[in-house]
């Protein structure tokens, strides 16, 4: 890998570089990595901030929505003055403020069957921070067809689930767990 870290980057990530499990080799992999985050809401906000701060070289963030005041108590990437702004713009500003050394690409659109595979193929890892079943199944299926590992998480009230779906890497997919969505009437909004 011919990716090099600049002196700025070495200074910024020095506490990573001194971890034997990470080191220069690990941090270079981080710089070379392209991660796509689906959703800039409750899960996507902290994910974007941590991944950006940690030095993922290229972060894609997709969310069609705008910031509402009722989002702010949990969607910590957005501030009070961001109300009404597209979430992808607001989170990009916050991440760039924390770490200007990475690249952030925003997609202010919904994930659809028409754009999913084209966008997924540009990334190494897909991270699902979506909040609805249609997007969750679409993300799962598109990650499978694009052969990308999918980091999955969901939260309902006080309970959460996390796993990695990667059938090509020896694990199950979301459909292995949930072959069909719950009846719409039971889906909490």
């Amino acid at each position: 890998m011919d990716i090099q870290l600049t002196n700025d980057e070495i200074g910024r990530y020095s506490r990573h570089l001194t971890l034997p499990q990470v080191g220069m080799a690990g941090q270079k992999k981080m710089k070379a990595a392209r991660v796509l985050l689906i959703g800039a809401g409750g899960l996507g906000s902290p994910l974007g901030l941590y991944l950006g701060a940690a030095g993922i070289g290229h972060l894609g963030i997709m969310d069609h929505d705008t910031v509402d005041v009722s989002n702010l108590h949990r969607q910590v990437a957005h501030g009070t003055k961001d109300a009404g702004r597209p979430k992808v713009e607001s989170i990009k500003d916050t991440i760039t403020n924390i770490n200007p050394l990475i690249e952030v690409t925003t997609y202010q659109e919904r994930l659809t069957r028409d754009n999913a595979l084209r966008i997924f193929q540009d990334y190494d890892v897909i991270v699902d921070g979506s909040d609805n079943f249609a997007t969750r199944y679409l993300t799962n299926d598109a990650a499978f067809f694009a052969q990308k590992p999918l980091v999955y998480g969901s939260i309902f009230m006080f309970e959460g689930q996390i796993t990695v779906f990667h059938p090509h890497g020896g694990g199950p997919c979301y459909r292995c767990l949930y072959s069909s969505p719950p009846p719409a009437a039971l889906v909490p909004s």
Binding site: Q21, V22, G26, K29, M30, A33, V35, L43, P46, L47, Y50, L51, A54, I56, D124, V125, V127, G129, P149, V151, Y152, G153, E159, G160, Q161, I162, T163, V164, F165, H166, G169, G170, G171, P172, L177
Partner: peptide, 22 residues
Amino acid sequence: MATETVKLIMGIGKTLTGRLLL
């Protein structure tokens, strides 16, 4: 989730592939 992403990228540790953390 962020930690899992970073582990996948760096190829370190044991990821949650095949395990569900509740």
